[in-house]
Structures are given as C-alpha cells and as structure tokens.
Design a protein around this nucleic acid. Sequence first.
DNA 1: CCGTATCCCTGTCGATACTG
DNA 2: CAGTATCGACAGGGATACGG
Lengths: 133, 133
Amino acid sequence: MSVAHTQVTPQAGGPCGDDDCGIREVLDRIGDKWTVLVVMELSKGVRRFRELHRAIPGISQRMLTLTTRRLCRDGLAERTAYPTIPPQVEYHLTPMGRSLAEAVRQLADWSREHKDGMQEARARWDAEHPDEG
Amino acid sequence: MSVAHTQVTPQAGGPCGDDDCGIREVLDRIGDKWTVLVVMELSKGVRRFRELHRAIPGISQRMLTLTTRRLCRDGLAERTAYPTIPPQVEYHLTPMGRSLAEAVRQLADWSREHKDGMQEARARWDAEHPDEG
DNA sequence: CCGTATCCCTGTCGATACTG
DNA sequence: CAGTATCGACAGGGATACGG
C-alpha cells in the first residue's frame, strides 16, 4: 500500500496492521441472527434447551438446535444430556465462550451508548436526502 | 420470565439485564460483509473512494458505495466531495465512527486470541462426529 | 423434551454495463 | 474517478410436520 497515513489516529499502528485483522473471522461466526443471543443467555448460567427457547423470543427449535450445536463444535459451549424421561439437555459456556460473551458485551455497551447518536444522524440524513430509495 | 438464575456468573447482573441488550442492534449494522472492513480502513485515516476500493480486496464498486453511504447516513463517517476533474471524494470517520472502530478492534483481538482454540475444538468435534452433514 | 427433515421465501451480494 | 442500474445466484432462516 502506497497511501500516505494522513491524520492517522493514535492507535492506528496497532494489531490490525495494514490488512484484514481477525475481524471478519469473528463476524462470520457470531454475525448470524441468533448466536450472540444464545451466548448472552448462556453467560447467565447453565440453561436447558427449553429455557433457551423461552428466553430468546422468536427463535425456532431448528435454529436453536443449529446454533447450540455450532457453539459446541467451536468449543464455545458444552452439552450435557441426561438420559431421563423425558430427555433433559443442559448447555453451558466454556471459558472460551465466557470470554467471547465478555467481548460481545463490550460491543453491546457501544451500541447502547451510541444508539441515540445514530438515530439522530439518520434522521438528519433522511431529511437532507428526500430521494428515498 | 420465570426461570431461576442458577449458577449465575458474577457479571450477569450487568447492563444486559434479562432481555436482549443492544447487541442485535450493532450486529444488524456492522454484521454485513463489508462495513467493518471499511471502518477499519478508515480508522487509519482519510481515504478516497479508490483507495478504499484497492485496500479492501474483493469489494465491488457497488458494495463500496452502499457501505460508505450507510456509514455516512448513520453518522459514523463523513464524505467530502471536491468538484475537480476528475472528481475526488474523501471519506473519514466521525468521533462516533472512531469509537466504533475501537470497539470492533477489541472483538478482533478476541478473534486472534482464540482462533487456534476454536480450530482445535472443531477438529476434535469433527473427529468425534463422523456424520458429516 | 429434544432433535430432525423438508420446503420455500427473502435479503444480500456479485457481475456487468452504463452515466456525469 | 465516483456513482448508478439491472439482473440473478445463493445462503440464511421461517413454517411445518415428524421421530426417538
């Protein structure tokens, strides 16, 4: 890259270097519709399948199954099945999963802090750009 | 919600409460394929359209236009057009955009730290679950 | 209770060609 | 150089019904 670093921010020389840092990697994992919600719910403690289902409005059985399985596959959660009748399955975060929950929580903090600012910016933009499309 | 909070983690009583915190809001903004890459590139300093295009491999003109415009609309970036010939357009992050870049960088840090761990977990899982689907 | 299978709809994005 | 317009592919995910 031959561009000049004009007006660079202080932390620009950080871990991201010049190229794509790991940012797309995470988003490819957690950027889907349900993963973060399941992670956040599990960050509160052990949960059964049905508890997750009720705690996360709108999720279907299918998507909850797929989401929990991917979390287990990636070592972010673990599954414990008790061979009772009726069956009982519990999920809990691994240490890695808890560290992800913490990182995600920071992003959620940003969201709540700047929700209003973005809302206003959008209102301004839409007022100045009447061509809705 | 009538679920009992068994084995709750220490930080569970935090800003997320019992419900969806702002986490889906952010991901609905930045969870797309290109936004974070543009933000990260702009976090290094002012960039022209063409510079962004070259710095972000694989992005099309169309997607770069759409992405930058949404950033401007949400007050995360600003656009400066110089009526020269040929045209020249510069983009830069607003303070709000820079704060987003910082939050995103933290998530990227998590990604790089745990990339290997997830890779291994997945290898283990795939070994124990020969039924590929 | 927990998980699977099937069908289909929708949004997101890529490719391409064209304007000021 | 920067942006627009059109078309089509493809994956994510919703609805539903079924199985252990």
